[in-house]
Design a protein around this nucleic acid. Structure first.
Length: 739
RNA sequence: GGGUUUAUAGCUCAGUUUGGUUAGAGCGUUACAUUGACAUUGUAAAGGUCGCAGGUUCGAGCCCUGCUAAACCCACCA
């Protein structure tokens, strides 16, 4: 072993010196590397670590997650388990694409100026750079992962699994190409799933517009008037009963046309006038109503957010421009009754905050009905245990919604959809303005071929004019396969480690990720991909507000590490917190834990300084070779009870409680009571005093190690150098009273 | 509208499968100590109607009901 950088004569514990020393030591010893050999005497414990997005430095959220994951891994190593912590890096899909677009714009380059391949290449380089940073930071915080197995989500081995799943889901009829209303981002120029959108409050106007002679409709979107295909009223609404199932003549700036009036329970009698215009082509709610009443679907807005050619006067105008102009025109025609100010929420793109334009479009979908049902059963039967339990209810609530998952994205950064069209595909519109996708128009039979590799000819007609799908897969389609896709990438790992022991992640991505990982696992292997789900809360500032760049209330974890050390920061994430609860982090909290680190250092220092070298004191390695002197010592007996208690708390994921009790025990029992009690005796080299204090110290280092890996390992090495313990690393040991 | 959570000292939080003496900790505040393993320390003190109102009970911070306030999630917002 290298010369120790730091001795027991140093009063103040210098965390960064010790951290880099220990880090090198761990790397040299290759302590956390794994293999596919199954040892039947050992339990297997595995966590596939949630991969951070390779588009920025790690933030507090990542570090807090790693604190929990590493804690569990190290704890199970000390139980004697065969532990795998498998690290990875996420290409981050649309998130990274948007971040990198901003990078490009700094160089005055627009994304669509580059080819897809060129964009992909540059974004890949950008990601590689970030991945290196992330990796360094992961090592810095003491993550005991097997870095020789670090894997990127765009790795070819991952791609193989993802494509296999896509193809088999297509063959099973779960994945299909379909037309429906989807969330469209006019800036990203892509379809988005519901979870990729969020709601934003917006000040807008409610326009009251005359429809026919008697009816007035209140709408925020007058520009979609041209695409109306019905009016709807509540069947219980006495005011409008007589109009139901009639047709009224509607005058508009684009001419006069007839609209049916339908009865619909979903219409709120108290909103506006109680008359709703139905625009199935541009509103998800209206789309559903349209399906129920078999209404035609008209489209007036294109993918750029501009009015399309079905409008004569507004063609080419952006939505807002068209809205203002049509309002002017309606006013001139005497059709505008009044305008009210309104604050309502609108869906926006989760990434770039552009207002979503609901559009009718052909996309790839995954039917989830059956899989969701099975997933609910798995949760209800506790095939998978969610901690905290109440989050399971949230999950089930989300799973009962029947929406299919829109898998295709019109983006550059990600896996291409493995689909091909014999003779290509075209979008045409029929006489009613309905969009129809036609296949095989440019010389082919129109067969859709779904397979991993590019086909050289059509398996149906033998044609060679094969056109590849240009869309890419939603990044969540691949990341929800992460638990098995990673393990399948290394021979024997899947067999040994699947299903994994725990999925540990933030409570905020339970729908995005956790729910759909379970769904995919159930599809692929008929079983849940992990046995337990542990969800940690979000880190907030002292006022309980979410940290964000724009608010400027964020804490840089690496600044805190420089100031107080990794151990203090990591302890602050778990200290006195309960599972799934958000926790407030601030400087004084971390500082308090730094003081605890220093207390541990000084107490250990005192013991080590006063141990007689000639006495050749050794500490028992397990309960059976414990000396009777220690075994019967009342202070040791009490400690032993405490030790069992902490181990039990860890098993129950009660890390907050355990950390609190360890703090309390070490500071106020070990230091304040026991050291004081044995102080004089120890200086007289009394064997019982030395053995009791040492045995407790050694065991306590093991107990605390998952929570504070650096200082405990360093003290352990000092004990090893003094021949007090026989292994040179805590990671090679087991808890004292585990046989 | 549906679901979930929280409310305990100035601040941040504990208060435990199971209700039980005088409700605890850290930070902060105040006083004192200091060549001592540790001033990143020690000893002590002040500080609480346990959100409000009922109920169950010999006994409620804990269980039940209602209310108030705050936060989060889902749906909708024409």
């Amino acid at each position: 072993m290298k010369k120790l950088p730091f001795t027991i004569d140093d009063k103040h514990f210098d965390s960064s010196t010790v951290e880099s020393f220990i880090r090198e030591f761990w790397q040299e010893e290759k302590l956390f590397e794994t293999n596919s050999n199954l040892d039947k005497n050992k339990n297997v414990f595995s966590i596939i670590l949630p991969p951070p997005n390779a588009n920025a430095r790690l933030h507090l959220g990542h570090v807090s997650g790693y604190a929990y994951q590493d804690l569990m891994g190290r704890f199970h190593r000390l139980l004697g388990d065969d532990v795998l912590l498998l690290p990875g890096k996420d290409h981050g899909g649309i998130q990274t694409e948007v971040v990198f677009e901003k990078e490009l714009s700094k160089q005055n380059i627009r994304k669509r100026d580059l080819s897809r391949d060129e964009f992909f290449k540059r974004c890949y380089e950008f990601s590689i750079m970030n991945m290196k940073n992330a990796r360094e930071q992961e090592e810095m915080i003491g993550l005991s992962a097997d870095f020789s197995k670090d894997i990127f989500t765009l790795d070819d081995r991952i791609k193989k699994t993802v494509y296999d799943t896509f193809v088999s889901m297509y063959k099973d009829g779960l994945i299909y190409r379909g037309k429906r209303i989807i969330n469209w981002c006019t800036r990203c120029l892509s379809a988005l799933a519901d979870v990729d959108t969020e709601n934003k409050d917006e000040d807008s106007f409610l326009y009251y517009i005359k429809y026919g002679d008697d009816l007035v409709v209140a709408t925020t979107r007058p520009e979609t008037k041209i695409a109306d295909t019905a009016l709807a009223v509540n069947p219980r609404d006495e005011r409008y009963k007589k109009y139901i199932n009639t047709e009224i003549e509607v005058v508009s700036p684009e001419g006069t046309y007839m609209l049916p009036v339908i009865a619909e329970d979903d219409v709120d009698m108290n909103f506006g006038t109680g008359v709703l215009k139905i625009t199935p082509g541009h509103s998800p709610e209206d789309y559903k109503i349209g399906l129920r009443h078999n209404l035609p679907i008209k489209t007036v807005i294109d993918k750029y957010g501009k009015m399309n050619e079905s409008s004569n006067q507004y063609k080419g105008l952006k939505v807002i421009e068209a809205r203002n102009k049509i309002v002017e025109d309606l006013k001139k025609m005497g059709l505008l009754v009044k305008i009210e100010a309104i604050n309502h929420s609108v869906p926006v793109c989760e990434r770039c905050k552009t207002i979503i334009e609901p559009l009718i479009s052909y996309q790839w979908f995954l039917s989830l009905d059956e899989l969701k049902r099975k997933t609910i059963l798995a949760i209800e039967n506790e095939d998978i245990k969610i901690h905290p339990k109440r989050m399971g209810k949230n999950l089930i609530q989300w799973l009962v919604s029947p929406e299919d998952w829109c898998l295709s994205r019109q983006l550059f950064w990600g896996f291409k959809i493995p689909a091909y069209y014999c003779g290509g595909k075209d979008i045409i519109s029929d006489e009613n303005g309905n969009l129809i996708e036609k296949y095989g128009g440019s010389g082919g039979c129109g067969e859709i071929i779904v397979q991993e590799n590019v086909p050289d000819k059509c398996p149906k007609c033998g044609g060679t004019n094969i056109v590849a799908e240009e869309d890419i897969l939603d990044t969540w389609f691949s990341s929800t396969q992460w638990p098995y896709a990673t393990l399948l990438s290394y021979p024997g790992y899947f067999e040994k480690y699947f299903p994994t022991s725990v999925m540990e992640t933030g409570r905020d991505i339970i729908f995005f990720w956790v729910a759909r990982m379970i769904i995919m696992g159930i599809y692929k292997y008929g079983e849940v991909p992990f046995k337990d789900v542990h969800l940690h809360g979000l880190v907030t500032d002292k006022e309980g507000k979410k940290m964000s760049k724009s608010k400027g209330n964020g804490i840089d974890p690496f600044e805190m590490i420089q100031k107080y050390g990794v151990d203090a920061l990591r302890y602050s994430f778990v200290f006195a917190n309960s599972i799934g609860k958000d926790y407030r982090l601030f400087d004084e909290k971390i500082k308090g834990n730094r003081n605890f680190v220093n207390k541990i250092w000084n107490a250990s220092r005192f013991i080590l300084q006063n141990i007689s070298d000639e006495g050749n004191i050794k500490v028992a390695t397990n309960e059976s070779n414990l000396s009777p002197i220690v075994k019967n010592n009342e202070d040791y007996i009490k400690f032993s009870e405490f030790e069992n208690r902490i181990i039990e708390l860890n098993k129950k994921y009660k890390f907050g409680k355990a950390s609190e009790e360890m703090y309390e025990y070490f500071w106020h029992t070990y230091c304040d009571v026991l050291i004081e009690k044995y102080k004089e005796k120890i200086k007289e080299k009394d064997i019982e005093a030395m053995e009791v204090l040492l045995t407790i110290l050694v065991s306590f280092m093991q107990l605390l190690h998952p929570y504070m890996p650096y200082i405990t390992e360093y003290i352990w090495i000092l004990l090893y150098e003094k021949n007090i313990v026989t292994e040179n690393s805590i990671s090679k040991t087991k808890f004292f009273n585990i046989s």
